[in-house]
């Protein structure tokens, strides 16, 4: 057995805090480039000016150290733990303390309520939504993806029938984006999870949003599905800010997974024009 590597939980807290600040202020280089391309291609005056505003917004956020969006989201945190890593301390507490510190330091909005019905604000944006998985080796990888609810609310899941096939999946994705209209702050990123069980499909859809924009799925069948669906979505004409125009989505990202003989779960998770996520390896 390889030698264990010990990582103090305080190191995780610091990394999560830094990632919360970075993700909320600095747009990903891939997203910025995609917005620029969309701006160059746009013919509608209103949509072109909206794309210009979104690019300028990203510049201002970075320069003035302001959050890209007032909805600094619920912090979704993915922790991948190397199999020879041992964390000293409580990982969940460490992550939540990182969120608490990062949101305070960045002057970010506290958007989390402690009970979904009673709705009392926790005042520090905790708790985060945390997912764990395992890697080979001695590193620990942390991704923070603050998720705003303008786009989260427009997401949807449906248990299709196997006979619905790829056409059924495509139709459900397109109809979900159509119903979302201007609400998720287009141009959007469309994360699609296909297969697994109900909750697996939803998690895949979320994870699909973490892929660099414009990177196709490695399997040609799914890469073609992504392109075909993207072109149907952009033909909807919702456009930037919902003001009409060519670019409603910057990308469609699919993650398929084996499923049951009786089922075809499909989840669509919509990401906004910034689709914020930052990763750090320790």
């Amino acid at each position: 057995m390889s030698k264990l590597r010990f990582i103090d939980a305080a190191v995780i807290t610091q990394a999560v805090a830094d990632l919360c600040v970075d993700a909320n202020i600095c747009i990903g280089a891939d997203m910025y480039a995609a917005l620029k391309t969309a701006h160059g291609a746009e013919l509608s005056q209103l949509a072109k000016s909206a794309l210009q505003d979104l690019l300028q917004n990203a510049d201002i956020a970075q320069k003035e150290k302001l959050a890209l969006c007032q909805d600094t989201g619920m912090a979704v945190v993915f922790i991948s733990i190397g199999d020879t890593v041992h964390v000293q301390g409580n990982i969940e507490d460490a992550v939540n303390e990182g969120v608490r510190q990062g949101y305070h330091k960045g002057y970010f909005r506290s958007s989390v309520v402690s009970d979904p019905i009673k709705r009392t604000n926790t005042q520090d944006n905790t708790p985060a939504v945390i997912y764990y998985d395992f890697l080979q080796g001695d590193t620990l990888k942390i991704t923070v993806a603050p998720k705003g609810f303008g786009s989260e609310n427009m997401s949807a899941l449906k248990m299709l029938m196997p006979s619905d096939g790829i056409e059924g999946v495509e139709e459900f994705v397109v109809q979900t984006v159509k119903a979302a209209g201007a609400n998720p702050c287009p141009p959007i990123v469309v994360g699609v999870g296909v297969g697994g069980t109900m909750e697996k499909a939803a998690l895949l859809a979320k994870q699909a949003l973490l892929r660099d924009i414009g990177t196709p799925h490695p399997n040609p069948f799914w890469a073609e599905f992504e392109l075909r669906t993207l072109s149907r979505i952009n033909a909807l004409g919702i456009g930037a800010a919902g003001f009409g125009g060519k670019t409603t989505a910057l990308g469609v990202h699919v993650l398929p997974y084996p499923t049951h003989i009786a089922g075809l779960p499909v989840a669509v998770n919509i990401g906004c024009h910034a689709t914020r996520h930052k990763t750090k390896e320790i």
């Binding site: 909206a50 990203a58 969006c69 209209g181 201007a182 906004c272």
Partner: peptide, 30 residues
Amino acid sequence: GKGDRNGAVIDAIQQHNGLYLAAIGGAGAL
């Protein structure tokens, strides 16, 4: 705000001399 309104709000805007203005969704820093 941002995004479409339902028919009742659109009707109320028309009947009561209202106005609905859209800001650019996601441009909070700007």
